[in-house]
Amino acid sequence: MERYIDGYVLPIPNEQLDAYREMADEAGKLWMEHGALKYFEGVGDDMEPDMDGMPMVPFPQLAETEDDETVVFSFIIFKSRDHRDEVNTKVMGDPAMDPDSFDEEMPFDTERMSYGGFRSIVSYGN
């Protein structure tokens, strides 16, 4: 079966990384509870890799990070696009997603977040 992936690239202020990790941990539990197959969040580590002269756009440039920010790359895997739509509808309807239930503000600028849905064209492993 062809998997479907929601992918995100976010510039996160370094001072907000712990708050973001806590938020992402709760979000991951919520997506998994509602049927996502896999939830992943990774923080930038090797952001200027040596590609042996091959031209590329590094993630910090892509995300337009400032000196006091880092990049977070995340993805959620679903059975299909229909399954993604079903899971996301459940997640968005969950009382935990009510903005009035949030204790604090978002630890990043949502207007600078990149997001997209992707059809799987090659996949190995789980």
Results as ranks from 00 to 15, higher is better:
93 G>Y: 08
40 F>H: 14
16 Q>G: 03
125 G>E: 07
14 N>D: 14
26 E>T: 08
78 F>A: 01
119 R>S: 08
27 A>W: 10
104 E>W: 00
108 F>R: 01
113 M>E: 06
112 R>D: 02
15 E>G: 06
43 V>S: 09
96 A>K: 15
89 T>H: 12
4 Y>W: 13
104 E>T: 12
24 A>I: 03
61 Q>F: 00
10 L>S: 15
53 G>T: 10
97 M>Q: 14
74 S>N: 10
38 K>A: 10
50 D>S: 11
74 S>K: 05
30 L>S: 03
97 M>H: 07
62 L>T: 14
107 P>W: 01
62 L>S: 12
106 M>F: 12
46 D>C: 15
112 R>F: 00
125 G>R: 03
36 A>M: 05
124 Y>N: 12
49 P>L: 01
17 L>N: 05
61 Q>A: 14
19 A>I: 11
93 G>L: 04
15 E>M: 09
68 D>F: 04
102 F>K: 13
43 V>C: 04
105 E>H: 02
82 D>Y: 10
93 G>D: 13
125 G>Y: 04
44 G>D: 03
60 P>D: 10
24 A>L: 07
102 F>Q: 14
92 M>K: 05
2 E>T: 11
75 F>E: 07
124 Y>H: 13
58 P>N: 04
87 V>D: 05
35 G>E: 01
38 K>T: 06
120 S>A: 09
